[in-house]
């Protein structure tokens, strides 16, 4: 018989505790969920509204992030910019910033008295805080760096000589980007999109700070979970299970990249 590999207890015990710590709460959530009443809870108008709002906002956020984030990633990866390292660091700040701080910052700048919000209000009559548009902005602030980092990494890994080959064939920079670069980095874009969408869906801190909590307008799923916990704990559990299901679906989308590990 093959000798068993020795596994020192000093490593195995903390590892087992760590594993239990990460999995037991989720298992508990599934065990405690009022499965019989699940359809009933999910079909209440408030939860329907929150669910719909969350999906719509996360999707709009992702669209916004793709529109702005892919060109930004291209700029960081390809353009010969002075201070590119500094710009890259700036982009990653929202990754490590507590989201509530992001919410406060947005409120300060885009609020009615803020340096930007003031003009939006007086020139266009637009007020962003405490609106559905505000939810999208708050989510985008937090989620966009995930997309940018993912796409920039893919761009840097892609061989830029293919872009030169396209240039010698007469393709403009924009055409090259569309027909050569984008297809080459498609996997990175998909991964970034999924991450960005999931992050937007779960956003809580920046949203509640900047957009407040108005059912049907700014109350997304995470906000609804938090509120329901005080009034209707069963509903909170049901909503949590729904979000857990979404998260697992996201992982399933990314399984080739992460779960299987390095090949």
């Amino acid at each position: 018989m093959k000798a068993r590999q020795s596994r020192p207890a000093a490593l195995v015990i903390p590892a087992a505790i760590g594993l239990a710590f990460l999995t037991i709460p989720l298992a508990g959530l599934l065990l405690q969920a009022p499965w019989k009443d699940l359809p009933h809870h999910l079909l209440t108008p408030e939860i329907q509204a929150a669910l719909k709002l969350s999906l719509v906002c996360a999707t709009l956020t992702t669209a916004l992030c793709l529109t702005l984030g892919i060109p930004l990633a291209w700029l960081l990866a390809r353009a010969d910019l002075p201070g590119r390292g500094f710009l890259r660091a700036l982009v990653t700040v929202p990754l490590v910033l507590p989201p509530v701080v992001g919410g406060v910052a947005l409120l300060l700048v885009l609020g009615r008295r803020g340096p930007v919000g003031h003009y939006l209000d007086s020139w266009f009559g637009i007020s962003l805080p405490f609106t559905t548009a505000g939810v999208v902005l708050a989510e985008a602030f937090v989620a966009m760096p995930f997309l940018v980092i993912s796409v920039e990494g893919a761009l840097r890994a892609a061989d830029s000589r293919y872009e030169e080959a396209a240039a010698t064939l007469g393709a403009s920079k924009l055409l090259t980007f569309r027909r050569v670069t984008l297809p080459a980095i498609a996997p990175g874009i998909i991964a970034g999109t999924v991450l960005c969408w999931a992050r937007a869906l779960g956003e809580f801190g920046a949203t509640i700070t900047f957009a407040g909590n108005f059912p049907g307008e700014t109350t997304t799923m995470p906000l609804a979970v938090y509120l329901a916990l005080e009034t209707d704990p069963d509903a909170a559990v049901v909503l949590s299970v729904a979000l857990l299901a979404v998260s697992i679906a996201v992982l399933a989308c990314l399984r080739d990249r992460w779960i299987s590990g390095p090949r």
């Binding site: 293919y162 030169e164 080959a165 396209a166 010698t168 064939l169 297809p183 080459a184």
Partner: peptide, 13 residues
Amino acid sequence: VGVVFQDYLLFNH
């Protein structure tokens, strides 16, 4: 110009 590169650089997609 037309260029044939050493490793051809054909677009794989």
